[in-house]
């Protein structure tokens, strides 16, 4: 729809800004991807998420 930014587009734009944190997280998962368990890379992910929330702006509602 014209004149309306879909949330997914804002999401993608914010994701593109965090490539450094993102690649750190990706590398952490890939280091041993046959043995991934819950919160394996939680520190890298939290850094990524922080960068993300900053990029997305104040209206971000993080859902669990």
């Amino acid at each position: 729809m014209p004149g309306r930014t879909r949330p997914i587009d804002r999401f993608a734009a914010a994701a593109a800004k965090c490539s450094k944190e993102g690649s750190a997280y990706g590398k952490c998962i890939l280091a041993d991807y046959n043995n991934v368990h819950k919160d394996k890379c939680v520190t890298e992910f939290l850094k990524l998420k922080e960068c993300y929330i900053v990029g997305f702006g104040s209206s971000w509602i993080w859902t669990y």
Binding site: F11, A15, I29, L48, Y52, Y64
Partner: peptide, 13 residues
């Protein structure tokens, strides 16, 4: 959370 993680794993993998 999953979407964000998947995007970067896709890129790395």
């Amino acid at each position: 959370d999953v979407l964000l993680a998947a995007e970067h794993i896709y890129r790395a993998l």
